[in-house]
Design a protein around this nucleic acid. Structure first.
Lengths: 201, 201
DNA sequence: CGACCATTTGATGGGCTTCAAGAGCAGTGG
DNA sequence: CCACTGCTCTTGAAGCCCATCAAATGGTCG
């Protein structure tokens, strides 16, 4: 599963320190909920998802991580499980070599708070639109965006059912806000109306 | 408004450093959303609430903080506003004297994730029950719990309306799970059924 | 008392979940 | 090549939960 390459140079912002470049296949588990949190990661390429399982058995996808994103910056134990959604290349940094930068932690905290805002008092349309816009910002600016995650992943991320996600996606397509090429590729046809749907008036 | 006392000793876990003890009245603003985050705080006594305003004008109460809780550990700028819900005594630590412990940050991150879990796929009963149980754990173990926050605060914290909060509270009382003494005091009559309502089967 | 505010309670409607079924697609094997 | 299987995704119909609209109650303060 994991192929390790020798020492690699971490990206800017991260002080020089031992960082191992790790290569993983689609579906590989990076760490599990409850494991001792002895490393934190930065995505070089590919997409990672983190999720946790709730008391009632529901799955909560807490985030999708792209190039440059940091995850697993918890202290002590991981609060979530991390999996490779596509083949990925990661930089792995040991906590022993210094705590995860408080910069990384507070970035995580900020995104957690943004994520909370997504839930409160927001309709399915608002959630999905906000999600699509966030994804659209991620890679290059092309209006064609790739959704490496399943509908089920999106639903578990947005706190909806796959039915509602699918219905809302179809609704956006019907109204020419997006067009659905296939399951994993959509085009944003009208950024303005999409951001309007997201509630950013 | 703020009465500052000389140097005080921070609580365990926090290395010796300059910490100012601050005393505030009910309603005082501790910091505002967007302010430069130059201090972080630990509650000595009283209750603090943090909130942010969303694009649509809605208010989101992101947390209530009791004795020993840390808030305002953001880097750069505060993401939320903090207010004294009751008269409070706080320890105030400057960021300049070292970053907020990554311990404090990751505690904040953990509680943010717990908070997210509260939102996803949970009914009004589950949310309110979980909230009441969290509050009940906060001070001493007495079954009488105090709610220094208004129904509106609770609603904005749980992503519900005051109507639903009130209705659900009445429903719990009708079913003898809690009893409502007055607006700010309730008793938990049946912890087991309350935790059951919270979804912790 | 009377004004004001927070809270409670009732009635109605809308949005999302749930239940149910069908469509599209990859893999397997005859 | 084509059934057959299993999966994800889509779509339709019905019901429930919560927001909304509306009004009554209770407490505080002048």
């Amino acid at each position: 599963m994991a192929r390790l390459s020798p020492i690699a140079e971490p990206s800017e912002g991260v002080p020089a320190r031992a960082a191992l470049q790790v290569q993983l296949d689609k579906g590989d588990v990076i760490f599990r909920q409850g494991d001792r949190a002895d490393h934190w990661y930065e995505v070089v390429s590919g997409v990672v998802r983190t999720c946790r399982f709730l008391a009632d058995g529901h799955r909560q996808i807490t985030g999708f991580f792209y190039n440059g994103d940091v995850f697993g910056a918890e202290a002590r134990r991981y609060q979530v499980m991390a999996e490779a959604l596509t083949p990925v290349v990661l930089l792995r940094c040991a906590h022993s070599e210094g705590p995860p930068q408080s910069a990384a932690l507070s970035r995580a905290l900020t995104s957690a708070q943004d994520y909370i805002a997504l839930f409160a008092h927001r309709t399915a349309s608002e959630r999905l639109a906000a999600f699509l816009m966030a994804i659209a910002r991620k890679p290059r600016g092309a209006q064609q965006i790739e959704l490496p995650m399943s509908r089920s992943d999106i639903a578990d991320h947005l706190g909806l059912t796959i039915h509602t996600v699918s219905r809302t996606m179809s609704d956006f397509a019907r109204r020419q806000i997006i067009s659905v090429e296939d399951r994993t590729h959509i085009c944003v046809l009208d950024h303005e109306r999409l951001s309007c749907e997201a509630g950013e008036l």
